[in-house]
Design a protein around this nucleic acid. Structure first.
Lengths: 222, 222
DNA sequence: AAAAATCTGTTGCAATTGCAACAAGGAGGA
DNA sequence: TCCTCCTTGTTGCAATTGCAACAGATTTTT
């Protein structure tokens, strides 16, 4: 992927972009599937952007319980700047699900006044603002799911959000295995399985592999 | 409160600040305790900053169940730009807990290139970026709490976060009533009460009114 | 192709949580 | 001051969820 296709440089023309890239001094790295891309214990100032591949942000608490915080696809951004675990209570890690290519930039490089006085610099800051906003919205949706009081409601609310984001005509796709989904919903896997089976029986849900369809036969319709 | 004390204008000197204020054309309003300050169904572009007073961001789902998303104090920022409920699934509202003074600014006013070419303008954008970052961290902490699997763990993790944010020497303070706290932790009130009573009995927690102390006698110590 | 590892689907049982109802305490308004 | 409304604290019972264990399916590695 060319740097100028990157969302951080959206709207910046190619030559400016190259100049800025040298200015930001980014670090592009490749990772094999299953490797640890980053850990938010101490690093504070690095922003990572997934150029290719898929990864997940996960947290392990002191008891070793895993929670999947977010699924990261191409163009997803992560970093302590966005979401950050301030204490020893838990560790947040980014782990690749497929082979990945990741670009790291220092936030301070972006924010600082550019000595070359790039006029396009401020465009990048705006893009960063936009990304932050998206991230906040994602986290907010995550909270919406987790604040549901039952497994059924958590699952449905999660699937509805995925549905809403799926382009017209495409089949909505769960970005996790069922096991991982239970870590995302923060519930027991077999209890989740039980609910899925029940919803299928009642004709509210069909799932095959990671594709699904929801039939909103309930009071949600209005 | 003078505008130049506002975090959005941090680091901008007074005369620049006044110029910019006229440029941003902010809307400052007062609210009585218990009023609805904002609702995120349609408004998309307004950022609110609490100048004085306290408020909460709450969500009501289709069944009327309330969730407290966030406690907002002085200098807190809110808006669909930060956290936004994209669908009819639920409604997010900002409700004042005390009398409040709130400043609204259009996000596009901040982001747009200023025709007066304020050099300090970019400082404001950076401040906004900083605020966004804080917001993301808050949401992230919220997720940390909600992803705990039991009421006990939710409560403790919530109290630890409050403790960590409390300045040395001060007594940590829960920003909610117990009833509201249960809406924040997304659990049943009497079940939460039961846990609190149990933790008190076991000497892990003391609470009087909203002040509390945690005694980390458990395996957390290391 | 075989072996290993991981994921799916199920179930009985135990533990936790939600619900409803009620008594008592406190805050604020008439 | 009294009255109302809201919060706290408690409890028995019901419902939901977690846990453990297992079998079969699927995927990955060797």
């Amino acid at each position: 992927m060319l740097p100028e296709d990157n969302i951080l440089f959206k709207g910046v023309d190619q030559s400016d972009c190259r100049r800025m890239i040298s200015c930001f001094n980014p670090d592009i790295r490749k990772y094999k599937s299953g490797s640890r891309i980053a850990e938010f214990s101490r690093e504070n100032d690095r922003i990572g952007i997934i150029l290719s591949g898929r990864a997940v942000m996960e947290r392990y608490d002191i008891n070793g319980v895993r929670t999947i915080v977010e699924a990261l696809g191409e163009q997803s951004v992560f970093g302590a700047f966005f979401t950050y675990s301030p204490s020893i209570r838990s560790v947040i890690e980014i782990v690749s699900e497929t082979d990945c290519e990741v670009m790291f930039v220092k936030r301070s490089e972006i924010t600082k006044r550019c000595e070359n006085a790039c006029p396009c610099h401020s465009r990048v800051v705006e893009n960063l603002l936009e990304l932050m906003s998206e991230k906040a919205i994602n986290l907010s949706e995550r909270i919406e799911v987790l604040s549901q009081r039952s497994i059924e409601d958590k699952l449905i609310s999660c699937l509805q959000i995925i549905e809403d984001k799926t382009p017209q005509g495409k089949t909505p796709l769960i970005p996790f295995s069922t096991t991982a989904l239970s870590d995302y919903l923060c519930v027991n896997r077999s209890a989740l399985q039980r609910e899925i089976t029940r919803l299928k029986k009642n004709g509210i849900l069909t799932i095959s592999k990671r594709k699904f369809r929801l039939y909103h036969n309930k009071e949600q319709d209005f």
